[in-house]
């Protein structure tokens, strides 16, 4: 559905997007992941024909964004980072305006407007002025605006930014419910969001493609190197030093760190080797030694850690890896 080849965009002095390539299949829900300033918005703006690329080529549904922007625009629904709303308009009037703007047939406008309002759960604020709406509602009006002409491709720029947790959940559910009919690209800098909504991830950093992979693979890859936190009670059977030595013997464990040592509980952080996850073996070793296993958990990996993983010291290897996955 979307093909991007060697895409670059330079602003006056900065390179916002540097030679990135990826492709998105019809029906995919792709997370576009990167820290602020990574080039996510720029890439999306190129795909939506808001601005032309400096170099490279991008096609949407077979149409080049530079050569045939009209055909591309007809097939794209776009929600920019701040929803493009006119505060002085009422929700219904605004959506009917967008429908007209997106070439929805006159006879269909009313029906489509009702439909998307139902879909995005904004029918109850239909006659309200947009300026009176809460952020969550505005975001949903923004989404309604993006899907009003039933586009093949939906491009959503940080659809959950600035929302409270409940609104974030609602928005994610809404996006998930749209995923059947539309190909969706959504940008975010929150990893759990990708986990919750997307099947595939494209990671960019400083304008460069870091990895394209499925969410499963990415989690796996990041999870392997993530630390495990272990809490146990020796039940008077050995001390912290003994526990540490025992844990270091466990296959797959590369490093053991003592975090808290007290009479009734010991907390360790364990780093595993990259090729296998030693959680099961650690658990077995603890139980076999007659200690009480109180807690064993993978420390949740934040995006920062994934980035350190993918862009940090082992950058060369990982990028090569990422390209392998992309190919």
């Amino acid at each position: 559905m979307i093909q991007v080849e060697g895409l670059s965009k330079n602003y006056a002095r900065t390179v916002a997007v540097n030679n990135i390539s990826f492709s998105v299949e019809k029906g995919d829900v792709v997370g576009f992941l990167g820290p602020n300033g990574a080039g996510k918005t720029t890439t999306m703006r190129i795909l939506t024909c808001f601005m032309p690329p400096t170099a490279g080529k991008a096609t949407v549904a077979g149409f080049d964004v530079f050569e045939q922007p009209f055909e591309v625009k007809k097939r794209i629904g776009y929600l920019p980072e701040s929803p493009p709303l006119y505060p002085e308009m009422s929700v219904a009037d605004y959506l009917m305006f967008v429908a007209r703007l997106k070439n929805v047939a006159n006879s269909e406008i009313k029906r489509r407007t009702e439909e998307v309002m139902e879909r995005c759960a904004i029918a109850d604020v239909k006659p309200k002025l947009i300026s009176k709406l809460s952020r969550g509602y505005r975001q949903r009006v923004g989404l309604a605006q993006a899907i009003i002409h039933n586009p093949d491709v939906l491009i959503l720029d940080e659809p959950t930014s600035g929302l409270d947790p409940k609104q974030i959940n609602e928005t994610r559910e809404l996006i998930k419910s749209l995923s059947g009919e539309h190909t969706i690209i959504l940008s975010t800098h929150i990893l759990p969001e990708v986990e919750a909504v997307c099947e595939k991830v494209i990671i960019i950093n400083k304008g460069k493609l870091v990895a394209t992979d499925s969410v499963e693979n990415l989690k796996h890859r990041a999870g392997l190197n993530a630390a495990i936190q272990l809490q146990l009670d020796t039940a008077g059977n050995g001390n912290a030093e003994v526990v540490r030595q025992t844990l270091e013997q466990v296959p797959g464990v590369s490093k053991v760190l003592e975090k808290t040592v007290s009479s009734d509980r010991l907390v360790f952080e364990i780093e595993g080797l990259s090729d296998r996850n030693p959680r099961a073996d650690v658990a077995r070793a603890v139980v076999n030694s007659g200690w009480n296993l109180l807690e064993l958990k993978s420390l949740t990996f934040s995006l920062e850690e994934v980035f350190l993983e993918l862009t940090g010291s082992s950058a060369e290897a990982t990028v090569a890896n990422g390209k392998g996955a992309a190919a």
């Binding site: 703006r45 939506t48 024909c49 808001f50 009209f70 625009k73 007809k74 794209i76 776009y78 920019p80 701040s82 493009p84 709303l85 006119y86 505060p87 967008v98 703007l101 997106k102 070439n103 605006q145």
Partner: peptide
């Protein structure tokens, strides 16, 4: 200022 120019610029018009 409102960013609504993005809506116009990405519509088939």
């Amino acid at each position: 200022r409102q960013g609504t120019i993005e809506l116009l610029a990405t519509s088939p018009i």
